[in-house]
Design a protein around this nucleic acid. Structure first.
Length: 458
RNA sequence: GUGGUUGUAGCUCAGCUGGUUAGAGUGCUUGAUUGUGGUUCAAGAGGUCGCCGGUUCGAACCCGGUCUUCCACCCCA
């Protein structure tokens, strides 16, 4: 079976039906992005390695797909490096390019390179595939689409509010009700670390805390202990584990917990503004919930942190995430440009919609009308008819060869065509055509000059 | 990257402690039905049992490797 072709691990082919469903999501998302005033950009599939390396942590570097140099690249490596057999020192010499790992870092690079052409605040959206050398699982692929909307050059918290409304608008359009948008603030996490005396262990503390809903309080404490966080700190952090109630109640609890931290207090203030403003404006289908354990992407988020959970009952990781990063372009030499953005996990949203059966049925229909083929003279008349149907905006086609009627009808059936048009010898003589409704099994004969009556059915 | 799991017809899956020509359902082709599909009936085609190697008189089944699938870590959309 060595002859059988295959595709690489974690990649997928998309059938016509799948592409139509994916485009349905893409189109709705794009429309809302544009409605909210975002502009599209695109960046290359691969970047210079130094643009990507070191931006996602050690773990991230490992997951970046590297592209080998062209030509006889091994001969250019010096003997010492070559014989050391260390990937970390050899890789930079034989690979200078790497596949895009996410859309945020290339966007930061874009902003820096085009800073003199861009009118700030700059609202951009970007829908492109990214690649990760990860081990695939359900909803985790090595090639998948990201779909980001970011605002750079605007410090106002109103941007956060608008992005939350954008999330809500998209999920409403997709008829995906019951999503939960979890929100937190990096400053609150930093403040907590400060008041419990674990300031220098912020990352270990939050990474462990992030797992609360997965491994429970005991699991989190065990992990914190392993990371060397003191018992006293954990005790001080105790209220976090039992934080509950409405958003406002949680805000009150956080305020008192963080009274000793200036940064923490600022985080609570920001969170309060965002939550209150969103509640004032109202959301259509999503639920906004404060979740202090949320700590994703700590690498560059500095303010708000978002994550979207699928409706309850659907087994799926987060279907979106985002937050504010005050100094993303700093790594490329442009200081003091604030950014805030959100991302949609399109591949996962697809799986969720599929599981819930939320795709519109009309998507399955790739053809509205099929003309059966009864021979050359009949086909010619049918083609003339098709031209008019297509002009009217219908998806119409002629069966390409004169085959058995059974076979042609079966084809129409398999393709979910709702109407079949028959123009045979009789109809040719009468100057008419017969329309068969494939769902009801009924037939109706029209004169050629009554075509408008048929088109009017749409 | 660590540990485990999966692979048999286009698809979904049976296949006993290793033993002759590897099965079912569905789909496909043909016919009943040469101008009528989705129902029914009949016949037919389709598999070097993921791939490579080993053990054995004999391997879909046991062993090793490899690829793939899914799962738990890691991390993340």
């Amino acid at each position: 079976m060595a002859q059988k072709p295959s595709i690489p691990k974690g990649t997928r082919d998309f059938s016509p039906a799948e592409v139509l469903k994916r485009n349905y999501i893409f189109d709705l998302v794009k429309r809302q992005f544009q409605t909210f005033g975002f502009q599209p950009i695109e960046t290359p599939s691969f970047e210079n390695s130094e643009t990507l390396m070191g931006k996602y942590g050690d773990e991230g570097d490992r997951l970046i797909f590297k592209i080998l140099n062209s030509g006889d690249f091994i001969s250019k490596v010096d003997d010492v490096t070559y014989s050391s057999k260390k990937s970390s020192s050899l890789t930079p010499k034989i690979s200078e390019k790497a596949l895009r790992y996410d859309l945020t870092v290339p966007f930061a690079r874009y902003v820096v390179m085009h800073q003199n052409e861009i009118d700030f605040p700059f609202k951009r959206y970007q829908i492109q595939p990214v690649w990760r050398a990860d081990r695939p699982q359900k909803g985790r692929f090595r090639e998948f689409y990201q779909c980001d909307a970011d605002v750079v050059g605007a410090n106002s918290l109103l941007q956060e509010v608008e992005l939350l409304q954008l999330y809500d608008a998209v999920f409403t359009d997709l008829k995906l009700t019951g999503t939960t948008i979890k929100i937190n603030n990096r400053k609150i996490l930093a403040g907590i670390a400060e008041v419990i005396g674990a300031k220098h262990q912020l990352v270990d503390f939050t990474v462990a805390l992030d797992k609360l809903d997965k491994i429970g309080e005991e699991g989190v404490k065990r992990e914190m202990r392993e990371k060397g966080i003191s018992e006293k700190a954990m005790e001080l952090a105790g209220p976090l584990f039992s934080l509950s109630g409405t958003n406002l109640q949680q805000l009150d609890a956080l305020r008192s917990l963080l009274s000793g931290s200036e940064q923490g207090g600022k985080g609570v203030q920001e969170l309060e503004f965002i939550v209150k403003t969103v509640e004032e404006l109202g959301l259509q289908s999503a639920q906004l919930t404060i979740d202090v354990t949320l700590a994703r992407g700590l690498n560059y988020y500095t303010g708000a942190i978002f994550e979207v959970a699928a409706p309850e009952g659907v087994q799926m990781g987060s279907i979106g995430g985002g937050g504010r990063y005050d100094d993303l372009t700093g790594i490329f030499g442009l200081k003091d440009v604030s950014g805030v953005g959100i991302s949609f996990g399109l591949d996962r949203i697809y799986l969720v919609l599929e599981e819930l059966g939320y795709f519109p049925e009309a998507l399955e229909r790739s053809l509205d009308v099929l003309c059966l083929n009864f021979g050359e003279a009949e086909a010619l008349v049918a083609l003339r008819l098709l031209g008019k149907l297509r002009k009217a905006g219908l998806k119409a086609d002629l069966y390409p060869s004169k085959s058995k009627i059974q076979k042609q009808l079966k084809y129409a059936n398999n393709r979910n065509v709702p109407y079949v048009i028959l123009i045979g010898e009789e109809e040719l003589a009468n100057g008419s055509f017969v329309v068969k409704n494939m769902l009801e099994g009924t037939q109706k004969e029209y004169a050629m000059d009554q075509l408008e009556d048929f088109i009017a059915l749409w």
